[in-house]
Design a protein around this nucleic acid. Structure first.
Length: 732
RNA sequence: GCUAGCGUAGCUCAAUUGGCAGAGCUCCGGUUUUGUAAACCGGAGGUUGUGGGUUCGAGUCCCACCGCUAGCUCCA
């Protein structure tokens, strides 16, 4: 017999070969029927798995069992993974020669990657869904079995599943036994767990198909990834689809065009954002808001140019490290790019003697004198010779980062410990040549303005500075109604060599960040291997009003640049010391942040941010003069107001203002003109209009602006069903 | 960058198997002088992303390039 502990703490005895299903049945037959899976000793497993197999070797204590029904978030992940299997089975029934790759769950659904000769199109979805429907109706069970390694390899070979075979050989090289799941004729290498039978899938829908690469390797085999989602009820699926629709309705690219906020012109270039007057107004207000806040917090404004010498970025490490995602250097000499290419080939060992001869002959045609070039010399001598030439000729880079410029400002004078922390702030525009496939409206662009600042401080000040910065981020996000966020603490992967700086500095930096977050009682998720190459960082993942997450603000510690640029301050001991740098951007970039805000507010900005706050609507042209007086007074009070002087009827004017999401309309006609009043029509509450003396209306609206009040609520999106994301976990 | 799909007026979209490029909104001119989600009449607006090709004839078919979208990969 074995002991089983249930969530209420009670302990019961079961036979040695008992399963979670047996536990459920002993509690009640209805529970047994409702169960999806179970959490045994902390791990989600099949209902039919013997409990003793879930024990660590040597463990003889009671086994903890928590039964999962469709109300537990973990169950949805199990359901979706099983749905991925059923979908794969359906695809294999409908298409020939289908190879299986991976089929994990996502927070919103699942996918399965296929290696197959036919192309799946959206037109094929109905017949695949119909096939899934048949399989669900048959409600066949998922049966687990295990094979020793040697047999498993032959088994998947017999199934002609080459990718699975490769995965067993490489990814699962250290697994002595491998588990499979069978469902009718469909067998898949899989860790599980699965639902008891396909009949548990009550609502499933295919969403999209796209290309992917085997194991995420861009050079690897190209696969077709079929996305879908599944729920325990049709109602949950409908709610999910409604949220997807809501997200589509809020698309900042659509709203940005509709409300003339920004424009991306083919002729200017991809990923280069043109801020239209209304979008620029929103951005300007945000900048003013944060500038005022920075001033209070002891930051000093600086401005720096948009380009800088390549050598500076070589010193900082950005140029060599991110070369592929930077715009090409700007050369002051016509032969600049030729010499650059020459060096690249030399360093890569790809320069044949024939090509080298061509370079040497070609250079003079571009008026480049490279007489000293050691034609018969060593590679290093040649590189040195060419680099000397480069250093004698101008090479500039469109700045990909503001930090080297700010570093130069720090270095422009001798710093005492009394000056520290030095906090230099700039809305700095940087340019990055993002891959074409990455560009996305304002959210991913090639020219962006960071609300950047660099804090130079003593090692002892790091934690205070970091804390102040986190508080700043909290304040600005809170001011915009974005107070639902979590923090990701990105740490280095100790096994990787992509990081610069000493182990000691990394440990210090990571410990400081952790300590402050813990002190501030901010929950955070440590993520190994996600740090920047120069230091750990804390990223703010912000949830918008319909439940989507965006990565916005970031705070990064840097022990590296001060080292590379030999930064110093004079300490109390009258000796030079090395400062620490903190990079931080509460918004991230203005482009991305405004893009997120457009989606968050669905372009209906709160009064303090609205590009046009108030529109005055004269009943007829007879009252245009009074409207002009009202407009003039509103402007004097600091409002962004216009008057609709068109000859259309009031109905038309109201409709247009409403559709343009103007927060307030002031209707003026005979009565208002005679009394010196305005009729205030609130966009969010058109049924309760108030006729107020103009001065009172101004006072009330001013208060709303000064408090930065956020009144609009998102259309209530049903909360997304919580899901424990599996990633590729349930695929081994 | 890769895979797939897409590109028609400022915007949203039509155009049968290859057979005269069209509508609504916006814009401009006029009429109307209005009390809370569209007053009426008229007009302008196009080398169908660019360049080649096939064809008697191309928005439609083929090729290359540019751009957009989704996903992959990347993100200092």
């Amino acid at each position: 017999m074995m002991q089983v502990q249930l969530p209420d703490g009670s302990i019961k005895e079961y036979p040695d070969n008992a399963t979670s299903l047996d536990v459920a049945e002993s509690i009640g037959p209805r529970l047994a029927k409702a169960c999806i899976a179970a959490v045994v000793n902390g791990k989600v497993v099949d209902l039919k798995r013997e409990l003793r197999l879930c024990r660590e070797p040597g463990d003889s204590g009671p086994v903890t069992v928590r039964l999962l029904t469709d109300r537990d978030p973990e169950a949805l992940g199990v359901l979706r993974h099983s749905a991925a299997h059923v979908m794969a089975r359906a695809v294999m029934r409908l298409f020939p020669n289908v190879g299986l790759a991976f089929g994990p769950t996502l927070s919103t659904g699942f996918y399965y990657d296929f290696d197959m000769p036919d192309r799946i199109r959206e037109e094929d979805f109905p017949k695949i869904e119909a096939e899934i429907g048949k399989l669900v109706a048959q409600a066949e069970p998922f049966d687990r079995f295990e094979l020793p390694r040697s047999e498993a390899i032959g088994f998947v070979a017999d199934l002609k599943q080459e990718l699975k075979a490769e995965h067993i050989q490489t990814g699962l090289a250290d697994h002595p036994t491998l588990s499979f799941y069978r469902q009718g004729e469909f067998v898949d290498l899989c860790r599980g767990p699965h639902i008891p039978d396909a009949g548990r899938i009550k609502a499933v829908k295919l969403l999209s198909v796209a290309a992917s690469h085997f194991k995420g390797d861009a050079g690897g085999k190209s696969l077709q990834r079929l996305y879908g989602t599944a729920f325990f009820t049709q109602k949950d699926l409908d709610a999910h689809l409604a949220q997807v629709e809501e997200a589509k309705r809020r698309d900042h690219r659509v709203l940005g065009k509709q409300h003339a906020l920004f424009h991306i012109s083919q002729e200017v270039g991809p990923g280069l954002c043109l801020w239209l007057p209304k979008g620029a107004t929103v951005r300007g207000l945000l900048e003013d808001f944060i500038k005022a806040e920075l001033l209070k917090r002891g930051y000093q404004p600086v401005y720096t140019p948009h380009i800088g010498r390549v050598e500076m970025y070589e010193t900082s490490g950005h140029f060599p490290y991110y070369r592929d995602s930077q715009f090409s250097p700007i050369f002051g000499h016509p032969a600049g790019s030729v010499v650059d290419r020459w060096i690249t080939l030399l360093e890569a060992g790809e320069l044949t003697s024939q090509k080298e001869k061509q370079f040497v002959e070609f250079a003079p045609l571009l008026e480049a004198r490279v007489e000293g070039y050691p034609l018969g010399g060593l590679k290093d001598e040649k590189v040195a010779s060419l680099k000397t030439w480069q250093s004698q000729h101008e090479r500039y880079l469109l700045k990909p980062m503001n930090c080297p410029h700010h570093v130069q400002i720090y270095k422009s004078q001798q710093r005492s410990y009394r000056d520290l922390p030095v906090r230099l702030a700039e809305f700095g525009t940087v340019y990055r040549h993002e891959q074409s496939g990455e560009l996305n409206g304002m959210l991913r662009v090639r020219g962006l303005t960071q609300d950047d600042a660099h804090q130079f401080c003593t090692p002892e000040q790091v934690e205070n500075e970091f804390r102040d910065t986190v508080q700043l981020v909290q304040f600005v996000l809170g001011s915009l109604g974005l107070d639902d966020y979590r923090v990701q603490l990105s740490l280095r992967d100790p096994k990787s060599d992509k990081y610069v700086g000493s182990d000691e500095n990394w440990q210090k930096a990571e410990a400081s960040l952790r300590r402050v977050l813990e002190e501030m009682k901010l929950s955070f998720e440590p993520r190994e291997g996600e740090a920047a190459f120069y230091g750990p960082k804390a990223d703010f993942m912000v949830r918008d009003c319909i439940g989507r997450e965006w990565q916005l603000g970031t705070v990064q510690l840097d022990y590296n640049l001060p080292e590379r640029f030999q930064l110093e301050y004079i300490g109390t001991d009258n000796r030079p010391h090395r400062p620490v740098m903190i990079h931080r951007a509460p918004f991230g970039s203005m482009e991305r942040f405004v893009g997120v805000l457009i989606e968050h507010f669905a372009a209906a900005f709160p009064l303090w941010l609205a590009p046009e706050q108030i529109r005055i609507l004269p009943i007829s042209e007879k009252f245009n003069d009074y409207a002009a007086q009202v407009e003039q007074q509103l402007k004097a009070a600091g409002f962004r107001a216009t008057t609709d002087l068109r000859s259309s009827k009031i109905n038309g004017k109201v409709r247009d203002a409403q559709l343009e999401l103007i927060p307030y309309m002031l209707v003026v006609g005979r009565e208002e003109a005679e009394q010196g009043t305005v009729t205030v029509r609130d966009r969010l509450d058109a049924d309760h209009q108030k006729k107020l003396p103009l001065a009172q209306a101004i006072a009330e609206l001013s208060a709303e602006v000064h408090e930065r009040r956020i009144r609009q609520k998102a259309e209530p999106a049903k909360p997304a069903v919580a899901v424990v994301e599996g990633g590729e976990a349930n695929e081994y």
